[in-house]
Amino acid sequence: MTERERPRERTDGMRPAVLETYGPADLSAVPVFAGGFINFGYWQPGDIGRPLTVADRIRSQQDLYRHVLDTVGPVEGGEVLEVGCGLGVGCALALEEYAPARITGMDIHPQQLERARRANTGLLASAGPARFRLVRGAAERMPFGEAEFDRVYSVEAAQHFDDLEAFAAEAARVLRPGGRLAVASFFAADPAAPDPLAALLTTFADGLDIARQPADLTDALTRAGMEGARAKSIGPAVWPGWDHWLSAQWGPGTWPRNFLHAWERGLLDYYVVTAERPRA
């Protein structure tokens, strides 16, 4: 691990950049992340080359959740955990569209969890804790017993995890035999990428995001005893649409537009990583 990859000093269990971004700065309130979701979106081919609406943006973020839930499924009737649930709107989508027996949203940031409780007041009340709960916990230290969940998923949070080995071990521990994991996030596509990514993208330079390769996670999952760990790129469905959406608010040459440049240069890509806990 290079100095640039090494997590910065932690406060309250979080690196300072994570504490600020999801606390006082409230990334969920930034207009580019509409609807309470905080992800780059899973875009349709028809989205490119036409003006995009806020409804298009919200749909793209919902569709990323749907893609992950379809990948980790079947979800219906199961105990499901989202790691890094943010405002819990993805949990709400999973509960309403995929009918798990119960969805648990876990996040490390207490301010995010408070926002999630406010955002989902009605659904939390109507579903009750038997079907929907929000819990504070870290990806590396999950506050659950062994084999509690049939499915574990995470949407655009793994780039913040301090320790992928610990996350992989915890995911394997809390999954039931035959349970499946799906993690959607962006990873360095080149071993030499951390320094170029930090030069292009503020989030890597300030320690919010950590540059790891997808093999760092798939190998960690295999070492944790999971089977069939693999990473599949979904970059073509993410980066062009994300940049097109940004173009209405950020001009050429501004740093958020460099996500597309990093992908085009082979430095960064978006992946869905999957694995399964063996049945025996």
Score class of each variant (00 low, 15 high):
87 L>Q: 10
184 A>P: 12
18 V>P: 00
1 M>L: 09
272 V>N: 10
203 T>L: 07
244 H>D: 12
90 G>R: 02
72 V>K: 04
206 D>T: 07
190 D>V: 02
188 A>M: 07
185 S>H: 10
268 L>A: 02
246 L>W: 07
55 A>R: 12
252 P>T: 05
156 E>W: 05
147 A>S: 15
199 A>E: 15
202 T>S: 11
201 L>V: 06
138 A>V: 03
138 A>T: 08
36 G>P: 11
17 A>S: 14
89 V>T: 08
15 R>G: 14
192 A>E: 15
134 L>C: 10
216 D>L: 02
258 N>R: 14
70 D>I: 01
160 H>W: 05
61 Q>P: 03
137 G>V: 00
155 V>Y: 04
78 G>P: 04
266 G>N: 03
9 E>G: 01
138 A>P: 07
105 G>W: 08
172 A>Q: 13
182 A>L: 11
89 V>S: 01
167 F>W: 14
27 L>N: 08
55 A>C: 00
148 E>G: 08
134 L>A: 08
48 I>C: 04
197 L>F: 05
265 R>V: 00
245 W>A: 15
44 Q>H: 13
144 F>G: 02
62 Q>G: 06
255 W>E: 15
79 E>F: 09
138 A>S: 15
165 E>D: 15
215 A>Q: 12
226 M>A: 12
230 R>N: 01
116 A>Y: 03
129 P>V: 10
72 V>Y: 04
119 A>W: 12
165 E>S: 11
232 K>P: 00
150 D>Q: 09
